[in-house]
Simulated scan of single mutants.
Amino acid sequence: MNAEILAQEGYFSISVDDAPVRQLFPGIRVRPLWRGPNGAKAAVLEMDPGSSFPRDDVHSPGPEEVYVVAGVFNDGARDYPAGTFLHAPADSWHVPASEVGCTLFLFYPEG
């Protein structure tokens, strides 16, 4: 790997497998990957088959961006298969669920 790239301030990498795992709800785990100085953050969310959030997931103070890496994600209204990108604006909400299980990449551009 290029040493100049690695020497750039703020350049960061982590393997998902090395990220700490925290259970949010039964069958739903989050792996925090990165947090920026302005509060932006990235994470991977893993949902087991048949799991769902027990309450609304409200996006505040900023938006949430989701990329469905594997499986099928449901936002409470429709299914989104792997390869789908979703942008949820600030103050929007949904009720995450997955019949078959899914892995999501989450990005929060604002803290």
Rank of each mutant, 00 (worst) to 15 (best):
D48R: 15
P49Q: 03
P49S: 06
G50F: 04
G50P: 04
G50Y: 10
S51W: 05
S51R: 05
S51V: 10
S52F: 01
S52D: 04
F53D: 01
F53K: 05
P54Q: 14
R55G: 12
R55Q: 12
R55D: 15
R55L: 15
D56G: 07
D57W: 06
D57S: 11
D57L: 11
D57H: 11
D57P: 02
D57C: 07
V58Q: 00
S60P: 00
S60F: 02
S60C: 02
P61I: 15
P61C: 12
G62Q: 06
P63V: 03
E65R: 06
E65I: 04
E65W: 00
V66P: 00
V69L: 08
A70C: 01
A70W: 00
A70V: 04
A70T: 09
A70F: 03
A70D: 08
G71R: 14
G71K: 03
F73M: 03
N74Y: 11
N74M: 08
N74T: 15
N74F: 06
D75T: 14
R78L: 06
R78V: 15
D79E: 12
Y80H: 15
Y80G: 06
Y80T: 13
Y80K: 14
P81W: 12
P81H: 13
A82V: 04
A82S: 11
A82Y: 05
A82Q: 06
A82K: 04
T84R: 06
T84E: 13
F85D: 07
F85S: 09
F85C: 05
F85H: 09
F85K: 06
L86C: 13
